[in-house]
Design a protein around this nucleic acid. Structure first.
Lengths: 214, 214
DNA sequence: AGTGCTCTTGACCATTCAGTCAAGAGCACT
DNA sequence: AGTGCTCTTGACTGAATGGTCAAGAGCACT
């Protein structure tokens, strides 16, 4: 899995370790050891531990954008986006759980919550930025649902989008703390429909139309 | 505000520092200095740093139970409990924001997320336990709403209760990361009604009945 | 063969970390 | 006055921390 490239190896190892545990509990020495890199090389690529963490976030963020763009693709039916969001979130959490041996939740929220208050190297600003970017996807989704008549014209897309985002964050954060995906698997999708405000009939109609054979 | 009692002073100071920042970023020395206590005294009362953190959580938990018992009092109308929950959560977050100079979110989730993976001194087990206890309040609320005909008999109170709890957690965690209570103030209550699944008419009827003068 | 560059190495540093300990202060009970 | 207890003190330890540095390895270009 890891590349031969030293910098990439550091980023990958650090991402895993920080995400699994926390920024504060992982030392530069440990990261170096796990990545089989000497300390000097580390400080050739990164000017500090916080700088490494920031680079990890940026890497994760780029990857996340790709995934989110697929899930929230404006080319898809907005209800399909909700289905995909729920499905992909669960699959991703399960993959990471298997890979890292534990439910890890959202790396941006985890780090952002830990760093809140001591803005080392702009780490906390970055979490803020990422969370607001994520919100934008949800707001966009709500807007499309409204435009297609699935939601009353009166609703505030920003409010509803942010509520929806925060519901997902809560689902996933609690899953980390409880180290369990049971509730995510059982409830994420239905909660999404409800917090968004979709009518059951509309969802059912969409599902029927999607699989006319059933 | 702080008592003369050394142990209490340590607990109070540590709670504030850990909640504001994080467990990993606060050192025993710093806590001692801020509480004006010498290191030896610290280790007279607590056998380790993790032990102190656990004691802080237990103290916070006891206080939280008192507040939750009031909010979710079975003697109140269940819709009133929702109103109170939203109101008290905002007030509490605002108080802490003013006191500590920043939005701090939920101490149990913050610590629980940071500690996930390295279960020092049962800290992580405690967060898990607290989060499940909180869920119980929400499940109980949903059950009462169902029993009084506000929700369809078919719904699963556990699922819905947990979804509701997680929505609130998400709201508050994102508020911490973004260091802003705007969305909490604007959306928490309405999102609560929607994630629980209350009908607008029922809520409005309850509000009308409550203030017949208006 | 020599120059200049990036990357690597391992020894090194000052500081901070959690935690220890022996000695004593304060106080209550006899 | 003496005993026994809890609490306090400050000096101490050894390990770990984030970070530095000078020296060199490897390689490409001339």
């Amino acid at each position: 899995m890891p590349t031969n490239n030293t910098k990439e190896r550091l980023l990958e190892t650090a991402t895993e370790m920080v995400w699994r545990n926390s920024y504060g509990s992982v030392s530069v020495d440990e990261i170096c050891k796990a990545a089989d890199v000497r300390k000097g090389s580390f400080y050739h690529y990164f000017k500090s531990k916080a700088d490494l963490a920031l680079a990890c976030m940026e890497r994760e963020c780029d990857e996340a954008i790709g995934i989110m763009d697929r899930i929230f693709s404006p080319g898809k039916h907005p209800i399909q986006r909700v289905l995909d969001l729920s499905r992909e979130a669960l699959i991703h959490q399960r993959e990471v759980q298997e890979l890292y041996g534990q439910v890890c939740g959202c790396p941006f929220m985890t780090l952002g919550s830990e760093m809140a208050g001591h803005d080392a190297e702009g780490l906390c600003a970055k979490s803020d930025e990422v969370s607001r970017m994520f919100e934008a996807y949800y707001i966009n989704l709500v807007r499309d649902l409204g435009a297609q008549g699935y939601l009353p014209a009166s609703i505030d897309a920003v409010s509803r989008g942010e509520e929806t985002y925060r519901y997902v964050v809560g689902m996933i954060m609690v899953a980390r703390v409880q180290n369990s995906l049971v509730a995510v698997e059982r409830d994420l999708l239905h909660g999404l429909f409800r917090i968004i405000g979709l009518r059951d009939e509309d969802v059912e109609a969409f599902l029927r139309e999607k699989t006319p054979a059933a």
